[in-house]
Simulated assay, not measured.
Amino acid sequence: MEGPVCLVGNGADGQLEVNPAALEILRGLAQPVVPVAIVGLYRTGKSYLMNALAGKQRGFSLGSTIQSHTKGIWMWCLPHPRRAGHTLVLLDTEGLGDVEKGDTKNDTWIFALAVLLSSTLVYNSKGTIDQYAMEQLHFVSELTEHIKVKAQRGDDAEEDTEFVRFFPSFVWAVRDFTLELRIEGQLVTEDQYLEHALELRKGTNKKVMEYNLPRQCIRNFFPTRKCFVFVQPASRQEMGRLDSLPDSALDPLFLDQTRRFCGYVFQCSNVKTVKGGIPVNGKAPRSPAEILLALPTGGRV
């Protein structure tokens, strides 16, 4: 593919619907697929990271205003840069929390689809991993309401813990990070920073339970976790044209952090599998294409 195409879009009635042309592209993938999806609040720079994974300066639209630019889920299929005979499927999602939509149900379904379709899920946020950032991940606590894994025999749903086996690995990308990585005066790694932020508080009162809920869900649903922090890539005046700036105009530390992020995703993202550890491609039963076709009302949510 020379560039991304819309895989799941917003119909005229506001419902999500699958793009038949993109579905045919997905069905035509005969190689094992490694799908990587990115989610997060709108206007947080998700598309830049996806273009970096594609090895391109331009591709997924970055946008330069306060409005959400990516709508629905966009797909870009490329030869995997590290694994011969594999296809890297990049999925850039509509920004969560767009005030112009006024419908959180749409966000919930996009988040759930990103989880189902990917083998690595990148959550993109800005600033720090604080309570506000955790609260924006309330979609995680709703996954059990939207995703069910059917037993191999019969139609009864298995225990909630069963579907964790099919969940992607989780990467938290913290953008425009300005703090020192220190906890109680000690230098820590990015992963230690994330795990510290996910620590649970003791107690059973309502406030403690609300604090713990998103953290407990992340810990339970995503046992494989990684964290990357990124400094601001350029001056505020230049942030709106990142897709046209040469590397020489970007912060060298940001470039190094982006390279480390891409290297990890390429090295550690697994082929998408189904029950029994069977790798899937675009044609196999329970492939990403079949997941999309199984959406309510024939590919519409």
Rank of each mutant, 00 (worst) to 15 (best):
L187K: 08
F163G: 07
K202R: 10
T108A: 09
I73W: 04
V39H: 02
W172M: 13
S235V: 04
V122I: 11
A151V: 07
D130N: 10
W109I: 14
I218C: 06
V5N: 07
Q15T: 13
V171Q: 07
A197M: 13
D103R: 13
E94Y: 15
G28K: 02
V301M: 06
P223A: 13
A284Y: 01
Q15M: 05
Q186N: 14
Y42D: 00
S235L: 08
E199F: 15
T87D: 15
Q186Y: 15
R236K: 07
L194T: 06
G59L: 01
A54G: 11
H69C: 14
F261A: 00
T44Q: 04
P214R: 01
E195D: 09
C227V: 03
P214W: 12
D130F: 07
V174C: 06
Y48H: 03
V301S: 07
E190D: 06
A197E: 04
N270K: 13
T161S: 11
L7S: 14
Q31E: 09
Q136Y: 10
Q232V: 10
P32Q: 09
V208D: 06
R43Q: 05
G277C: 13
V164W: 05
E159C: 11
L213F: 09
L250Y: 02
T70P: 03
T65V: 13
W109L: 15
F167T: 01
P296A: 08
D176V: 01
F266H: 12
P288D: 10
F177G: 00
G9V: 03
I66Y: 11
L143F: 12
R215G: 05
V99H: 10
A21E: 07
A84K: 15
V99A: 15
L96N: 01
T189N: 14
A37I: 00
D13V: 04
V229Y: 09
H80G: 08
L194W: 03
A12Y: 08
E158G: 12
C227H: 03
